[in-house]
Amino acid sequence: MTSTTAASSGKRERTVTAPNGTETGPQLYVRAEVRARKGKQPAWLLAAVVVLAIACGASLAVGARAIPLETVWDALAHFDPADGNHAVVHARIPRTVLGLLAGGALGLAGAAMQGVARNPLADPGIMGVNAGAALAVVGGIYLFGITGLTGYIWFAFLGAAVAATVVYLLASTGRDGATPVKLALAGAALNAGLYSLMNVVLVSSQDTLDRFRFWQVGSVAGRDWSVILPGLPFLAAGALLVLCSGRVLNTLALGDDLARGLGQRVGLSRGIVALGVVLLCGSATALAGPIAFLGLVIPHAVRFFTGPDYRWILPFSLALAPALLLGADVVGRVALPPGEVPAGIMTAIIGAPVFVWLVRRGKGASL
Rank of each mutant, 00 (worst) to 15 (best):
Val167Gln: 04
Ala133Lys: 03
Phe157Met: 10
Arg118Pro: 02
Pro299Asp: 09
Ala186Thr: 08
Gly128Tyr: 06
Ala259Ser: 06
Leu101Asp: 01
Ala87Lys: 14
Pro308His: 01
Ile349Lys: 04
Ala75Arg: 01
Pro299Cys: 07
Gly246Tyr: 00
Thr96Glu: 11
Leu121Trp: 06
Val89Glu: 00
Cys281Phe: 10
Gly344Cys: 10
Leu232Trp: 14
Ala348Phe: 02
Met198Lys: 06
Gln206Ala: 15
Phe355Ser: 07
Ala58Ser: 11
Ala323Asn: 10
Gly159Asn: 03
Arg12Cys: 12
Leu252Arg: 04
Gly140Glu: 05
Arg265Gln: 14
Leu326His: 05
Ala284Asp: 05
Ala171Leu: 03
Ala102Trp: 12
Gly128Glu: 06
Val356Gln: 06
Thr285Val: 14
Pro337Ser: 01
Phe212Tyr: 15
Gln41Thr: 12
Val116Cys: 04
Pro315Met: 03
Arg311Ile: 00
Trp357Met: 14
Gly110Ile: 04
Val181Phe: 11
Gly222Tyr: 01
Arg35Val: 12
Asn191Pro: 08
Ala171Glu: 12
Leu143Asp: 04
Arg14Lys: 15
Gly110Trp: 02
Thr96Ser: 11
Gly238Gln: 02
Leu268Glu: 10
Thr5Pro: 14
Cys56Pro: 03
Phe305Met: 15
Gly307Asn: 02
Arg12Thr: 15
Leu202Ile: 14
Asn85Ala: 14
Gly107Ala: 02
Arg118Ala: 11
Asp80Leu: 08
Thr165Lys: 09
Val166Glu: 06
Glu13Asn: 13
Thr306Glu: 05
Ser172Tyr: 09
Pro353Tyr: 05
Val137His: 03
Ile54Trp: 01
Gly107Lys: 00
Phe234Ile: 13
Pro290Met: 06
Leu169Trp: 15
Gly362Trp: 02
Leu287Asp: 10
Val331His: 01
Ala105Trp: 03
Ile153Cys: 11
Phe305Leu: 15
Ser226Met: 09
Gly289Ile: 11
Val297Arg: 07
Trp154Gln: 13
Ser283Pro: 01
Ala6Asn: 12
Ile93Ser: 05
Ala301Tyr: 01
Ala112Trp: 03
Ala112His: 01
Gly261Trp: 09
Trp312Tyr: 13
Ala58Arg: 01
Gln114Leu: 00
Ser196His: 11
Leu320Lys: 07
Tyr168Val: 10
Leu46Glu: 12
Val273Thr: 00
Gly125Arg: 05
Gly351Met: 10
Gly115Ala: 00
Val227His: 15
Gly107Thr: 01
Trp225His: 10
Arg35Pro: 07
Ile291Gln: 08
Gly332Leu: 08
Pro68Val: 03
Ala109Ile: 03
Val167Met: 07
Ile228Gln: 07
Pro322Met: 01
Leu209Met: 13
Ile298Thr: 06
Thr306Ala: 04
Ser204Ile: 13
Gly110Leu: 02
Thr306Met: 10
Glu13Met: 06
Pro81Lys: 05
Phe155Gln: 07
Leu268Val: 15
Ala77Phe: 15
Gly307Leu: 04
Ala274Asn: 13
Ala236His: 02
Ala292Arg: 11
Gly57Met: 00
Leu262Arg: 04
Ala161Ile: 03
Phe212Gly: 08
Gly364Lys: 01
Gly246Leu: 02
Leu158Tyr: 05
Leu324Thr: 10
Val341Gln: 10
Arg211Leu: 13
Trp215Thr: 10
Ala288Leu: 07
Pro342Lys: 07
Ala77Ile: 15
Leu190Cys: 09
Leu268Cys: 13
Arg118Val: 07
Met346Asp: 05
Pro81Ala: 15
Leu232Ala: 14
Arg118Ser: 08
Thr165Arg: 09
Gly271Phe: 12
Ala239Tyr: 05
Pro322Ile: 00
